[in-house]
Amino acid sequence: MPVLRVHLDSDRSTARRVLQLHQEGKIHHESREAAREQVWRRGHTPAGDPTFVGITNGRRHVQLLYDVEVYSDTVL
C-alpha cells in the first residue's frame, strides 16, 4: 500500500509534547487527526491510522511528520 508523508506545522512546545508522548507509547490525538484530514484533503482515503515519524529540526518552523497508508485507487 502506498504511504503518504504528511507535514503538519507546529510550535516547538507542542512538537516536544508530541515527541514525548510518542516515546511513552502514547498518542497525540489532535495531531493524528490533523494528519488524517490532510490525507483526505489531498484526495486519498487513509487505509489505517497515521503513524508518527518525528519532528523537523527547524529553528523557526517546526513540523510534525506522519506517515499514512492510503488506498492506491483513491485519487480525486
Rank of each mutant, 00 (worst) to 15 (best):
M1V: 09
M1S: 14
P2G: 02
P2S: 11
L4Q: 05
L4P: 10
V6M: 00
H7P: 15
H7L: 15
H7Q: 15
L8A: 14
D9E: 13
D9C: 09
D9P: 14
S10Y: 00
S10G: 12
D11T: 13
S13I: 13
S13P: 14
T14E: 08
T14W: 15
R16Y: 10
R16W: 02
V18L: 08
V18H: 06
V18Q: 03
V18N: 05
L19N: 15
Q20K: 14
L21V: 02
L21D: 08
L21M: 13
E24S: 02
E24P: 12
G25E: 02
G25R: 11
K26A: 11
K26G: 00
I27P: 02
H28R: 01
H28F: 10
E30G: 14
S31M: 13
R32P: 02
R32V: 09
E33H: 03
E33L: 01
A34N: 06
A34Y: 04
A35T: 11
Q38A: 12
Q38S: 13
V39S: 05
W40T: 08
W40L: 14
R41S: 11
R41H: 00
R42H: 13
R42L: 14
G43T: 06
G43L: 03
G43P: 08
T45E: 08
P46S: 10
P46A: 05
A47T: 12
A47K: 15
G48E: 12
T51M: 05
T51P: 07
F52L: 06
F52K: 00
V53Q: 11
V53Y: 06
G54P: 01
G54L: 00
I55R: 03
T56Y: 07
N57C: 09
G58V: 07
R60F: 01
V62P: 11
V62Q: 10
L64Q: 08
Y66S: 08
Y66A: 03
D67M: 11
D67G: 04
V68R: 04
V70E: 12
V70K: 01
Y71I: 10
S72Q: 10
D73G: 14
T74F: 10
T74L: 06
V75L: 14
L76G: 04
L76A: 14
